[in-house]
Every structure is written in structure tokens, then in C-alpha cells.
Amino acid sequence: MMAELLTHVLVAYVLLTVGSWQIDGLTPRWVPIGMAGAAIPDLVKVGILVDERTVEALLGFPFSYGPISTIGGVVVIAAGITLCFTEDRPRVFGLLVAGGTLSLVLDGLRMYADGQASFWLYPIWWRPPTPSLYVTSDPRVTAVAVVVAAGVFLADRDASDAPSERR
């Protein structure tokens, strides 16, 4: 029930790449970290591979994958991924959380039949109102993301080729 992962990571790519044109510390190596962060809420789809009921049977208590697609879950998973890095961890963590939050915000703009999004602010139990802009399986959303990302990729390549600045 979410904008698919490609759209999430492409939106992160576009924002971070454009941001890197202005912000000195935001070099190309940080872009895939933010993109990976944008994919964190989509890990909730692990439920397709391992059913919640199977996990409940293993644990012996009720369980839901739900928190993965929430602010609380993104922060915890981002922290875990951050510990897999040997250097620059604060910035890794910051970009993972920023990417994950971006995806949650995008998902919060989707259509919900009663006009309110999911509990994506968990541990705050509140469903923010949604402007109901799109449904996730709409290929036009993906198409727009691909076209904009391709444009940014080309602009970024030209900027990198320019003789003057940039590392």
C-alpha cells in the first residue's frame, strides 16, 4: 500500500542531488545513503516473504510489521544500519532518517478512503489528514519520478564536467 520503492528512492535522489549543488558537505557519496533511507519504510513488505502469523508463532506473542513504516521504526532501523558503518556515523544516521521521513511524508499524501493517512507518526497514535493526491500503483507517478530523476542526472553530469569546482 505504498508508493513503490523506485519512486521513493528517485525522489530522494532528486532532492539530494539538487541539494548537493548548493550544500558543500553534501557530496555524491551521501546521495545513496539518503536513497537507502528512503527505502526503509518499504521494508514493511518483508511480510510478503514471511507472514506476520509465522513470526507470531515463533515469538509466542502478537506482532505486527506495522512500525517499520513509521517514524519510530525508521529511526530504530536507521540506527541499526548506521552501526554497520565504520566512519562518519552521525551523518549516515541523519541522511537515513531524512530519506525515510521523506518516504513517509510522500506516502502520507496518498489516497485513503476516509481521508486520513496511516499511523505513520507512531509512536504518536495520530492519523494525519491526507490530501489524497495519488494511488501507489498509478504508473504515472513512477513515470514522473523517472523523468525528473533522469533530468537531474543529466544536469548533475554536466555540472560535474564543468571545469571549475566540485570534488
Partner: peptide
């Protein structure tokens, strides 16, 4: 740290449910 965060995530899954 990763193990503890994993346990925390499982706890959140249970709390959420």
C-alpha cells in the same frame, strides 16, 4: 548495538499490534 535495536524493533512490533 544492532542486536539490541533489533530487539527494540520486535518490541515495537508487539506494542503496535
Amino acid at each position: 548495538g544492532v542486536v539490541l535495536l533489533g530487539l527494540l524493533l520486535v518490541g515495537m512490533g508487539s506494542h503496535y499490534d
